[in-house]
Amino acid sequence: MTHIKTLGMYETVLNDNLISKLKINLKSYMDFLKKIRQKIDEFCFNHMRMDGAQHLIAGILIYDVLKYLIPVWSAILITLIILVAKEVVLDKWIRKGVADWHDIIWGVIGLLLGVL
Results as ranks from 00 to 15, higher is better:
residue 57 I to E: 01
residue 24 I to F: 08
residue 3 H to N: 04
residue 45 F to Q: 03
residue 71 P to D: 07
residue 35 K to P: 00
residue 11 E to Q: 03
residue 9 M to V: 15
residue 111 L to M: 00
residue 68 Y to P: 03
residue 55 H to K: 01
residue 6 T to W: 11
residue 36 I to A: 15
residue 69 L to Y: 06
residue 76 I to M: 11
residue 26 L to N: 06
residue 94 I to Q: 06
residue 20 S to N: 11
residue 111 L to A: 12
residue 83 L to R: 00
residue 66 L to P: 05
residue 112 L to S: 05
residue 22 L to E: 11
residue 89 V to K: 00
residue 107 G to F: 02
residue 13 V to W: 00
residue 16 D to E: 04
residue 59 G to H: 03
residue 75 A to M: 05
residue 81 I to W: 09
residue 57 I to L: 14
residue 8 G to M: 07
residue 22 L to S: 11
residue 28 S to I: 08
residue 4 I to L: 15
residue 107 G to M: 02
residue 102 H to A: 08
residue 80 L to S: 02
residue 55 H to F: 07
residue 114 G to K: 00
residue 64 D to N: 10
residue 28 S to T: 05
residue 29 Y to C: 09
residue 94 I to Y: 11
residue 53 A to L: 10
residue 64 D to I: 00
residue 103 D to I: 12
residue 26 L to A: 05
residue 17 N to H: 07
residue 16 D to N: 02
residue 39 K to Q: 13
residue 43 F to N: 02
residue 19 I to P: 12
residue 59 G to L: 03
residue 86 K to Q: 13
residue 80 L to C: 15
residue 59 G to Q: 01
residue 116 L to W: 14
residue 69 L to M: 09
residue 96 K to Y: 12
residue 86 K to S: 11
residue 66 L to W: 04
residue 40 I to V: 15
residue 102 H to C: 12
residue 47 H to Q: 10
residue 30 M to W: 08
residue 64 D to K: 05
residue 98 V to M: 08
residue 67 K to V: 13
residue 103 D to G: 10
residue 97 G to Q: 09
residue 58 A to V: 09
residue 106 W to K: 00
residue 103 D to V: 10
residue 69 L to V: 14
residue 80 L to G: 10
residue 87 E to K: 04
residue 33 L to A: 13
residue 104 I to K: 08
residue 8 G to K: 06
residue 39 K to T: 12
residue 20 S to H: 01
